[in-house]
Write a protein that binds this DNA or RNA. Structure first.
Lengths: 138, 138
DNA sequence: CACAAAGATGCAACATTGTTGCAAAAATAA
DNA sequence: TTATTTTTGCAACAATGTTGCATCTTTGTG
């Protein structure tokens, strides 16, 4: 169990519990790769499904993690990068869904293209998913 | 029942049935606005839920409609624009989700920004959703 | 038009994802 | 250690989506 996990929970002002530590540890291990609630349920043995949903919701509201709707119908979750801890989010990065290995990856290094909407739209969040075949699968 | 519906079904080489006509008519009426399976179920009275799922799947595979994962957890569907009938899709347009009126709109007029992925990624589809407040709600 | 073949529908049953209420347990503050 | 607050775990439920199978409809052909 890394210090990073305790640190993150502390900074998010969340109580430290066994389940939270394990779920967050799993998400840290997962790195760039976004994983589903179901994945976590299998990785964290013995965790209660309902508790897990609540933990994920709490983490997301605290800005520790973000969710991705990658088009598979299953919500995926991934750690937010360091820049988005502390209040404001900067989750506006690309996600890549590979139809071969069925993984969803955060591509934080790829620069997000600017989008020009008519000025009467208020833009709050960009959710960009690119689907195709990832570098390891072709 | 507009001719457009029969025309679309014909071009897609799909058998013409009451349910398909009604579902497609509903999607035509809905225009730019993407609607959920549940919405359609209420708009097309008496339609069987399972049949509806199958019709939507068929329409999507035929390129008549496209689906949008807007982050609400409910898949939304909308007619494809004229350009994407006939084999190849050009569904790479933006979608806007308004958190006030909770509608999802296809913004086909907004030009999609080019995205530069590392060359070892094969890009097949772009699923871009912008969330915020739409022009009618602020 | 009638008939046969192919395809679509409707129903039951089931799987998965996600939510709510509530009592018991655990974490923090005093 | 005790009191307060929060979190957990369970039951029950709701929504979305899928599969198998018998029945009905559509469509092509004589």
């Amino acid at each position: 169990m890394s210090d990073k996990v305790l640190d993150l929970l502390h900074k998010a002002e969340l109580r430290i519990t066994k389940s939270r530590r394990e779920v967050l540890e799993t998400l840290v291990q997962s790195g760039d790769q976004a994983i589903s609630s179901n994945d976590i349920e299998h990785l964290v043995r013995g965790i209660d499904r309902i508790t897990l949903y609540r933990i994920l919701k709490t983490f997301e509201e605290s800005g520790l993690i973000h969710s991705v709707a990658d088009g598979t119908g299953k919500t995926k979750y991934a750690l937010c990068s360091h820049e988005c801890n502390g209040g404001e989010h900067h989750d506006d990065h690309l996600h890549f869904y590979c139809r071969i290995c069925e993984t969803t990856t955060c591509l934080e290094k790829v620069q997000l293209p600017p989008v020009r909407l008519p000025s009467d739209y208020l833009v709050e969040e960009k959710r960009f998913v690119i689907a195709g075949v990832c570098k390891d699968c072709h």
